[in-house]
Amino acid sequence: MLTSTDFLFYVLAFISVFFGAAVVIARNPIYSAMSLVITMISVAFLFGALDAWFLAGVQLIVYAGAVTVLFVMVLMLFDLKHEMKTFSKGLLGNGVKLIASGVTLGMLLVYIWSTYATEPTFKPLPPAATSSIKATKDLATSLFTDYIFAFEAIGALLLIIAVGAVTLSRITGGTHHADS
């Protein structure tokens, strides 16, 4: 019988696919940004459905709360009147691109169906092994034992990106000639 979790999955899946498509199709980039936010939130809840609560929180904070804010802010920076005109829906007609992605999608779905759907072991969602706090702690310990190098690399990367972004923004010819 359709349990609450299944119903939940289908609702969230529908939301994320619907608003995912909206991101691609929306004429006004601001609308696509907003639909991106909604997709992020639904993906966060999907993580929740998979009992990865800490990741759901992080997704909300990082993606929904920071990255998309940046997108919206940058979009507000550009005057979108011009953007609207160059909307590239016209290019949608470009058949090859569609065919390629269609074939890929078809292949992916068939592949997944052939390997996982028929696999009984993956069918029912196994019960959550540990409490979500315990799961988060396992995540943290493994982050600091197995992936310590990656962790340090990420630190260095973020530093570099920070420096890079600032210097990039410093390039002359600012938006307002006054404050360039």
């Binding site: 907003m34 609560w53 759901a56 929180g57 904070i61 929904a64 709360g65 804010v69």
Partner: peptide
């Protein structure tokens, strides 16, 4: 009750910025 209380709360409260931006725009 989520297991990870504070992280979820922080995540949700970070969504607050959107209402401002939407209102502004």
């Amino acid at each position: 009750d989520f297991g990870v209380g504070i992280v979820m709360v922080l995540g949700i409260s970070s969504l607050g910025a959107y209402s401002l931006l939407m209102a502004g725009w």
